[in-house]
Design a protein around this nucleic acid. Structure first.
Length: 663
RNA sequence: GGCCCCGUCGUCUAGCCUGGUCCAGGACACCACCCUUUCACGGUGGUGACGAGGGUUCGAAUCCCUCCGGGGUCACCA
């Protein structure tokens, strides 16, 4: 049976063999009322959709605890222990993405940000802080703490310096794989569990290059998981893992254990990909004791094991784990498909073929492509052509999954890469509240029915906070269904009041399509407002809005006439359509008021006067379609009332004249 | 490959713990029809699943076992 989160928290079971928790300051003060969850991203890129979901569930758990009258806190910690890949810019980006989604944290890095909707009208606010005094929240600033605990473990004989080189270990690993055996690090013969190895420690202190490894315990490790139930790991499955790297930084596993304890984390909710690591974390918790400086001077206070909950992984539709690498995969596939197609068409291999027509060497060809990428990606040319070239080659042969190269290829060839990171979805015009709603549904559902007996599946952050509980988190991985996300987003756009839509549409256009916004504003200050009711039902995303308004984005001279549309609507039947448009032009020219209802009325009356009436009423089609082609160039556009209103009388007449002339 | 987790329509899922009300409900997608000045929106209806095989039971999607399938993980990355 899976314990509910509430009962787990109130009566946390003490498994056999585990020390009962020893009270110390924080515990006696706050007792079991303190609930601390955390999201701990590595600042090596943008916020991933799966990371966002982890953050959301942690946020929701803490928020729910608060609603239940407890001291629920959601905390952010930046795991920047990978010196080579971490960046402050990335950390800032992740925090921004969370704030954009509307996820806020009580404890953690401080961020000044605009709230959920990205709505410029609302005030900026500050998120984060250190009210419990357990920071800093960047692990790179906590190295001294990790070192103190490493030393305590070494002195207790529960860890030891190891001096093998990376090459040595790699060779052993290869040998094991070649012999079809599972590789495990073999503990050196001179290391005795529980005995301080002074000789090794001295070598380390003397400056010899080393890592520190944790002595894996001999017995079973049982992880109590409030989502999955108990997970038991047999002895011998765990080898002596590295807890401090040669550069002096802790590994993820070690830093996590130290920080979760010191920062008072009570509930660790994360993706199932971490499940296999959890026994290691538990083993370390059982070996570690708080240093006196972290317990107000008392000694002998053991680390506790938080409540764990491992949630399902988010997968692509093909079942593989959704990963940033998917972008590279798509871009690479495109490159190869393109090469295939060209090869088939040209009936000869692409590279030699191109070499033949350009007279370039293979290297020069790649240089040419790279030069284009270089200009687009790196206008100031901070990287050399050679660097770019080698990047692209690496990418092409599959040895590199660089998102930058993938993006450059996508931009150059105008293909679209799948949205994987929150930033991608934002750029594509998804609404933050929809993303929240949708990712909440990936692995969790409120299990409620509405009045009509249908599943409740449209909800917002406050609803999630109110209803979230671990026993409704699923166990099986979920495929990320983009079609359903799109549908939800379209529903949200359609349901928005016009003025709100206009505000958020404007914001998005200004962020991602400023030229389009400038053009629309040049048509009149209420253009967006006029367009709103016509655009909303036609756009699933904010980027989608650009399609139905393409006619307005083009200048009066700038749009093309589709010949088939011209033929069918204007020229057919001896130019009947053209004649109607010519006649209706006069009506329009005489129109005193120029807005959507007025245009629409004029259209109907004109149609009626022409006798286009059926038993169902006036049929404006015979006039509307030719007119549509005249002003838009194609047979598809939003309703003509709004369309003409936005263009204005002058442009409308000019477009009609241009069309008539083009026949 | 070792270890671990998971398995209800194509997809997300309700139902499973507390067997019968389930010849399995909802949503997205798909199909048909209706509405309609185009494209959309909307409305109505439809196709569609308990992975397989054994048990237990009067009765199993629900409990047990085996098999099969999928995923995760095996770094001085987090």
């Amino acid at each position: 049976m899976r314990p509910s989160d509430v009962s787990t928290l109130r009566t946390r079971p003490t498994p056999a063999g585990e020390q009962p928790p020893v009270p110390y300051t924080r515990r006696t003060m706050a007792a079991q009322d303190l609930v601390v969850t955390r999201f701990a991203p590595s600042p090596t890129g943008h916020l991933h959709i799966g990371g966002a979901r982890s953050a959301l569930f942690c946020w929701a758990f803490a928020a729910r605890a608060r609603l239940d009258g407890r001291d629920g806190r959601f905390m952010i910690r930046i795991e920047d222990t990978d010196q080579a890949r971490s960046s402050e810019e990335s950390a800032r980006g992740i925090l921004d993405d969370l704030a954009w989604l509307g996820i806020t944290w009580e404890d953690g890095p401080v961020l000044k940000s605009t709230p959920a909707s990205g709505d410029a009208n609302q005030e900026t606010r500050t998120i984060g802080g250190d009210s419990r005094g357990v920071g800093p929240y960047f692990q790179a600033q906590r190295v001294a703490i990790y070192n103190a605990y490493v030393e305590s473990l070494v002195k207790a004989g529960r860890a030891y310096p190891a001096f093998e080189t990376t090459e040595e270990l790699e060779a052993r690993r290869k040998a094991a794989v070649a012999a079809k055996q599972t590789y495990r690090y073999e503990r050196p013969a001179d290391v005795q569990p529980g005995v301080f190895n002074e000789a090794r420690w001295s070598r380390a202190l003397a400056g010899e290059r080393h890592v520190v490894r944790f002595v894996a315990p001999p017995g079973d490790i049982v992880v109590h998981d409030s989502i999955l139930g108990d997970v038991r790991i047999a002895p011998g499955e765990l080898d002596d893992l590295v807890i401090r790297k040669a550069d002096g930084f802790p590994t993820y596993h070690f830093a996590v254990v130290i920080d979760d304890e010191l920062m008072g984390v009570t509930h660790v909710l994360r993706a199932q990909e971490h499940l296999a690591n959890t026994p290691r974390h538990v083993a370390m918790q059982q070996a570690l004791v708080r240093l006196p400086e972290h317990t107000g001077g008392r000694s002998g206070v053991p680390f506790r094991t938080p409540v764990y909950g491992h949630m399902p992984v988010i997968c692509n539709m093909d079942g593989s784990k959704m990963s940033k690498r998917d972008k590279a995969k798509i871009a690479r596939k495109f490159l190869r498909d393109a090469i295939d197609v060209i090869q088939k068409g040209a009936k000869q291999p692409l590279i030699p073929h191109l070499q033949k027509i350009t007279g370039m060497s293979r290297d020069q060809l790649f240089r040419a492509i790279v030069a284009v990428l270089d200009v687009q990606q790196d206008p100031v040319r901070t990287t050399s052509i050679d660097d770019r070239l080698s990047q692209l080659l690496m990418f092409e042969i599959g040895d590199s999954d660089s998102i930058e190269v993938a993006s450059a290829i996508a931009e150059y060839f105008a293909i679209s890469l799948p949205e994987i990171e929150i930033w991608d979805f934002r750029k594509s015009g998804y609404l933050p509240e929809v993303i929240i709603n949708f990712i909440a549904l990936l692995g969790w559902n409120p299990g409620m029915k509405d009045a009509a007996g249908k599943d409740v599946e449209k909800f917002d952050l406050p609803f999630i906070a109110e209803h979230f509980s671990l026993d409704r988190v699923g166990k099986s991985s979920a495929k990320f269904d983009r079609a359903k996300l799109l549908s939800f987003n379209g529903d949200a756009i359609a349901a928005m009041p016009d003025d709100e839509f206009v505000r958020r549409w404007r914001q998005w256009l200004s962020d991602y399509e400023p030229a389009a916004l400038a053009r629309l504003d040049s048509l009149g200050e209420s253009t967006l407002k006029t367009l709103a009711p016509a655009v909303k039902p036609r756009a699933k995303t904010l980027r989608d809005t650009l399609k139905p308004i393409a006619f307005a984005l083009a200048t009066d001279e700038g749009y093309q006439f589709d010949t088939a549309a011209l033929e069918k609507n204007l020229k057919a039947n001896g130019g009947a359509g053209a004649a109607l448009v010519r006649e209706f032009r006069g009506v329009l020219a005489a129109l005193a008021t120029w807005d959507a209802p007025a245009v629409h009325t004029a259209l109907e009356e004109f149609a009626k006067s022409k006798g286009f009436v059926t038993e169902k009423g006036v049929n404006v089609g015979p006039v509307a379609q030719p007119l549509r082609v005249a002003i838009a160039g194609v047979a598809v556009s939003p309703p003509l009332g709004e369309s003409l209103a936005v263009l204005g009388k002058q442009s409308t007449l000019a477009r009609i004249d241009r069309c008539l002339l083009a026949l």
